[in-house]
């Protein structure tokens, strides 16, 4: 689905990632870990076409990112749900409309009282906050809303960057269960996190592979967890 082949990425002078290869197969569950500043977010951005590799190839659904136009990238985003570390919303629209935004921009607007939307909001526990504006939400609520927005198009891949960064342990367990549930439905999941406890908790629920960025390269980390 998403394939990085010998990819390098450098900001200005320094190379952040090099000779990095990664394949996200359908239905797989990956964790990406490593100290902050090692390029986890950059790697995710390479995976959804927000950045183009400075060397090597990145393929989204079989298409080379370098050959994709802006509209191709936009179309591929409809098949990839992204949850950012600092989730951003349209602050002037209520939460329900924000969650339904991917549908609106792809030309399939739904009413805010739509059954599927209500179910989705109930699933992330935000039914009561449906009419709240994003600035009124807590960090955990924002992250759940971002997750709901990421999955509303029923994407094939979900990329999450520190999805449990702003929430307490209980909430992070809930978010994890949501992601595991999505994985069981056949979605490909990649979570960047430095929360080892979260990874351990996940491994008891799902066969997850753990990757680590060491010295600008990707390594399989496993046994120590």
């Amino acid at each position: 689905m998403i394939e990085l082949d010998n990819v390098a990425y450098s900001y200005g002078g320094g190379e952040l990632l090099s000779e990095l290869s990664l394949q996200l197969a359908p239905g797989s569950f990956h964790f990406l870990t490593g100290p902050s500043g090692t390029g986890k977010t950059t790697l995710l951005k390479l995976c959804y076409g927000a950045l183009r590799p400075t060397a090597g190839y990145a393929r989204l659904f079989g298409q080379d990112v370098r050959q994709m136009g802006r509209d191709d990238i936009a179309m591929s985003r409809r098949r990839i749900g992204v949850v950012h570390q600092d989730c951003q919303f349209l602050d002037h629209l209520p939460l329900a409309e924000n969650v339904a935004l991917p549908l609106a921009v792809s030309g399939q607007p739904i009413a805010s009282g739509d059954e599927n939307l209500r179910e989705l909001l109930a699933w992330v526990g935000l039914t009561e906050r449906a009419l709240a504006l994003p600035p009124e939400l807590s960090g955990g609520e924002r992250q759940r809303a971002a997750l709901a927005r990421a999955v509303i198009m029923s994407p094939e891949v979900i990329l999450a960057d520190e999805p449990t960064g702003n929430v307490d342990w209980e909430m992070s367990q809930r978010l994890l269960r949501l992601l595991v549930e999505l994985n069981r439905m056949g979605k490909t999941i990649l979570i960047a996190t430095h929360d080892l406890a979260l990874i351990r908790a996940a491994k008891s629920q799902v066969p997850a592979r753990v990757l680590r960025i060491v010295n600008r390269k990707l390594q399989a980390a496993g046994s120590e967890l």
């Binding site: 985003r77 950012h84 951003q88 198009m153």
Partner: peptide, 16 residues
């Protein structure tokens, strides 16, 4: 800029 970034993230085309 933030609105545009959010729209790009959820798959809006430039035309939209």
């Amino acid at each position: 800029a933030q609105v545009i970034a959010v729209l790009r993230l959820v798959g809006a085309t430039d035309a939209y």
